[in-house]
Amino acid sequence: MADLSVSLNRLTLKNPILVASGTFGYAKEMTAFVEFAHLGGIIPKTVTPQPRPGNPPPRTVETASGMLNSIGLDNDGFDQFVAEKLPYLTGLGTSIVVNIAGKTNDDFRRMATRLNEVPGVSAIELNISCPNVSGGVDFGTDPSLAAEVVAAVRESCSIPVIAKLTPNVTSVVPIAKAVADAGADAVSLINTFQGMAVDWKRRRPVLGNVLGGLSGPAIKPLALRIIWQVSQQVKIPIIGIGGIQSIDDVMEFFLVGATAVQIGTANFYNPGLANQIIRELPEALATLKAESVKDIVGTLQIPKRD
């Protein structure tokens, strides 16, 4: 039997298939469709220090093989999350990676300090990459600011720290390097690409927030490219995200350098997918004569040019 477990520095997962923040609600919504205990991990929707109503609708629109969203981190705030959602999540029999976003280092520090006290939180994922809110995106586009927030969180807690990075920069590599140097256990690559949809007959943007983040199969080649580039130059493990909708997609992410992956947009249109991929993974590993996931991570072979 293949070994599906993976290690991302201090975080060990029973298998490499997680579900991405913002695409799985707080898990309870998925009860009818998903065997939670079989998942590698669950990353609930981003939580912020204070409640946020989110952006005005329309908040999503479908595009060619993808979708734009501008939810705007609609959530009931950190206290309510810890009191009401976390107890449910930590009882689901899988790793819970809490995704947090703040406007200052202190915001992140305070939430990390509290989460450190909650039994059952496996790791913290820092959302320093949401394209739909002001005040958060700056962390993720500047290597020194990104490093500062990671260092602040590392100092505040002893649980593993993952930085989720934005692709909306010229190169993700310097930012990934900076957060690795600051002590991040892993990077999640990538959040959505900023995009726009227009209703020309009404001379209006389609989204209430004008701009949104593009996700879905349309961005998979971009995600593969960025993971490949980062894996060549940065030592910490990568969690790949971007348009995954099949076991084939997952294997491609492993080969370019991802140690684990997150299923995102596909949860919306195929909520049983993460469980299905986990069932299909041993056979796919066997196809490459691999006995464990780590045997194939970053094993893409580039043919020599003549």
Binding site: G25, E29, A32, G54, P57, P58, R59, T60, N69, I71
Partner: peptide, 8 residues
């Protein structure tokens, strides 16, 4: 089913 928070 409540996961995406689009339909508010």
């Amino acid at each position: 089913f409540g996961a995406c928070f689009s339909c508010v």
